[in-house]
């Protein structure tokens, strides 16, 4: 079938684009671009899962693809957009520790490091199937790049998106391990939902309870009636 010939190439292209989207996550300044990049990344993972399903024929991969499509391409970005509407912030201009050019350099070093480490330690498997090796290197690199995004971004929402892309990296890594039990994916989804829910409650809580802080301060007589700190 033509599909089985094209599938490995498409998987490779999608893997590379996944890394590219990871790079965009590190440097994008607009909130809506961030969410869109995350959607794009999840969509690429759906394509990779479909490609692997065609290559190897496990039905679980198809289910994984559908689940990822529903939850990560549609569901979670919708949640995040809801949160964004409540906190009216359009841009995330501040970075701590590292600005985007430096972060991109660091991520290049990370990819190189992961490649070298895995090549040394996984010699026995490297020869076996190069798609697994590429998938594992890119999966772990994406996890580390997501970690970098969590560290250098200041806003809580951006940190959450960095965390979500870390989970994408773990998913990408897990896709290449055949016969992984399906409920792993299910579990990651539940974990993500809990995390997004909780963080949304908290970040909205920070933002909306500014008034409550004032009443608390007044209660403790730390805020004088005119509004200054006594």
């Amino acid at each position: 079938m033509i599909l089985t010939e094209v599938a490995p190439v498409w998987i490779r292209i999608c893997l590379i684009l996944v890394l590219v989207s990871g790079g965009f996550l590190l440097s994008s300044r607009s909130m809506s671009n961030l969410v869109r990049t995350y959607q794009f990344q999840s969509f690429l993972l759906v394509l990779i899962a479909l490609g692997l399903c065609i290559l190897e024929g496990h039905i679980t991969l198809l289910l994984v693809a559908v689940l990822t499509l529903v939850s990560k391409v549609w569901g979670i970005p919708a949640c995040i957009r809801l949160i964004q509407e409540r906190i009216h912030i359009q841009q995330d201009l501040k970075f701590s520790y590292l600005r985007p050019p430096g972060a991109l350099m660091l991520s290049i070093l990370i990819i190189l490091l992961v490649y070298v480490c895995f090549a040394q330690i996984l010699e026995s498997l490297y020869a076996a199937s190069s798609l697994f090796f590429l998938g594992s290197v890119i999966g772990v690199s994406l996890v580390l790049m997501g970690l970098l995004a969590v560290c250098i971004r200041r806003m809580a929402i951006s940190k959450v998106i960095g965390y979500l892309s870390m989970e994408n990296g773990v998913l990408a890594f897990g896709l290449f391990v055949t016969e992984l039990p399906f409920f792993i994916e299910f579990v990651i989804i539940i974990d993500l939902i809990i995390l997004v829910l909780l963080t949304s409650i908290m970040t909205v809580g920070i933002d909306s309870s500014i008034e409550e802080y004032k009443t608390r301060l007044q209660e403790f007589h730390l805020l004088s009636e005119e509004g200054g700190i006594s």
């Binding site: 772990v140 996890v143 809580a156 940190k159 989970e167 890594f173 995390l195 909780l198 908290m202």
Partner: peptide, 18 residues
């Protein structure tokens, strides 16, 4: 404090999953 806890522990747990 709670957000810091979640972020540090959850991101590290992802490594555990790998």
């Amino acid at each position: 404090a709670s957000l810091k806890y979640i972020f540090i522990c959850s991101t590290s747990m992802l490594f555990s999953f790998i």
